[in-house]
Design a protein around this nucleic acid. Sequence first.
DNA 1: GAGTTCATGTTATATTATAACCTATCTTGC
DNA 2: GCAAGATAGGTTATAATATAACATGAACTC
Lengths: 126, 126
Amino acid sequence: MQADVLAVLRRRDAPMSAYEVLDRLRDGNSRLAPPTIYRALAALIEGGRVHRLESLKAFVACKCEQHGHVPIFSICKECGTVEEAVSRRITNELSRIAGQSGFAPARHVIEVHGQCARCESKEAPA
Amino acid sequence: MQADVLAVLRRRDAPMSAYEVLDRLRDGNSRLAPPTIYRALAALIEGGRVHRLESLKAFVACKCEQHGHVPIFSICKECGTVEEAVSRRITNELSRIAGQSGFAPARHVIEVHGQCARCESKEAPA
DNA sequence: GAGTTCATGTTATATTATAACCTATCTTGC
DNA sequence: GCAAGATAGGTTATAATATAACATGAACTC
């Protein structure tokens, strides 16, 4: 099931809601309920192979080689595509800030909403 | 209504769900429905006086003097308290990363989950 | 093959959020 | 004053997201 869910997510580079994944998988198997999908997603996220975009309530397959990093997502509000980046500077600076108050970070959520280069140039084709 | 919602949020330093706010306000006024609360929250967020914690689906009053900054939240998974920080370095670095791919940032979501100093010392009182 | 474990199925429901439409109040210019 | 528009909020209904709780079945263990 995890493999099926991951395959569906990988066929898109835009995020999908859990119910979109569900609908997509129901094409072949009508007896499929939300908990099945949410369980698979939870396991995939645990393993770092899928990320949840908190601000979109949606999920994407991880595009990085190595999992276990801190992902930084750029989310285009026009076309919905998502880029995944990594920055040690950001991770370090967040640790530094947390350290000032003795906070022990366990999980980071970094999401940037905006407009990708492609959509920007379409909108204002100078 | 915005004032009422803001007052409720300010009485706590932990995040509240929209429905917690609703219940709290219903104490005095039983005829109050979700859209009313969500509208007030939307306006407050627009004005920078309230933030939505995306990863918690919850809301907090902004604690900063000046609104319009990029807030960085530290969320304690034990006690639920939230600290709000600002870092120009992070903002700059995020802009730099975005710039590399021509992405135009409009809104930032930065949330760090972990354990606050207080809860850490309680748990392992060395 | 009885007992255990693990993934998944199943049913029901909780939680979060918004659409669509209505009503009241305020405001502004005449 | 009062019509016209603007704005906030009320009301009803429902959409979208997520999980609890329990049942089933296959696979493995001894």
